[in-house]
């Protein structure tokens, strides 16, 4: 019963909260969208936290995404043992790096007086949830070997079933507790998304790569067009 709720209902609740929340925040309070960077207040420790964390989490997230979207690719890669070892080894190294980054970021929030005063309650909650997610992820990787192989047999079909609105929770109930916690916590993160600084992920400024350097705005021309 509990598992039906956690894997069959909660994911939808989280998704609705996330999508609705993002739209609400973007339309009513764009001013609050920011990376809320604290580099200006403290930048020595930040390097050892922010750089490994961000680069690590981007690669790990992309890895999960490829597993869900293109499981055949992962399967093809893992067909040869050496390639499986390389994939798993890289992923583990990246996740350890991002764990170090996250721990540095948390420590910095606590010990730097300037950073501490700019920390909101939500920042604290978020850091805790993220740490939980990273630790359960890494422990799953260590205790239940070759996650990249069984991920595509369990999480991939489950997530696909969620997105096609016919959730098949049996894929998840069969998994060990660590992995279940990892999955549920993922949906918690989705639900937190619109109410935390995570929204800065939606602001990734890729358009900058194609933009001319100078931005000039006409008011008069806009008026004439009206």
């Amino acid at each position: 019963m509990l598992e039906t709720f956690l894997f069959g209902v909660f994911p939808y609740a989280a998704l609705v909260i996330m999508i609705g929340g993002v739209i609400w925040r973007y339309t009513t309070n764009q001013f609050s969208y920011s990376s809320v960077s604290s580099q200006f207040l403290e930048n020595r420790q930040l390097f050892w936290g922010s750089a490994p964390w961000h680069y690590g989490i981007i690669l790990i997230l992309l890895g999960h995404l490829v597993g869900v979207l293109f499981p055949d690719t992962i399967q093809a890669i893992n067909g040869v043992p050496v390639r499986l070892y390389i994939l798993e080894g890289t992923a583990l190294a990246m996740s350890l790096a991002l764990l170090v980054g996250l721990v540095v970021l948390i420590t910095r929030r606590v010990i730097s007086p300037r950073v501490r005063v700019t920390t909101s309650v939500m920042d604290g909650v978020l850091l805790f949830v993220l740490l939980f997610q990273v630790v359960t992820g890494i422990m799953t990787a260590i205790f239940y070997r070759w996650g990249s192989a069984w991920f595509i047999q369990t999480a991939t079909p489950y997530l696909r079933s969620v997105f096609t609105l016919s959730p098949n929770i049996e894929y998840m109930t069969a998994l060990p507790l660590l992995s279940k916690l990892h999955a549920i916590n993922f949906f918690v993160l989705l639900a937190l998304f619109p109410f935390s600084r995570l929204v800065h992920m939606l602001s990734v400024p890729l358009a900058y790569l194609w933009r001319p350097y100078q931005v000039v705005m006409w008011y008069r021309r806009r008026q004439i067009q009206q």
Binding site: S34, S37, F40, P205, Y208, Y213, V215, V216, R220
Partner: peptide
């Protein structure tokens, strides 16, 4: 400042040349 703003939040007003930061568009990439 305009040239390096990833969000495109800083712009020059064409009519009078004043350079301003849109507080709505700025994402704090600094």
């Amino acid at each position: 400042c305009v040239a390096v703003c990833p969000s495109g939040a800083i712009y020059k007003r064409a009519e009078d040349g004043v350079v301003v930061v849109s507080q709505e568009k700025c994402r704090g990439w600094r």
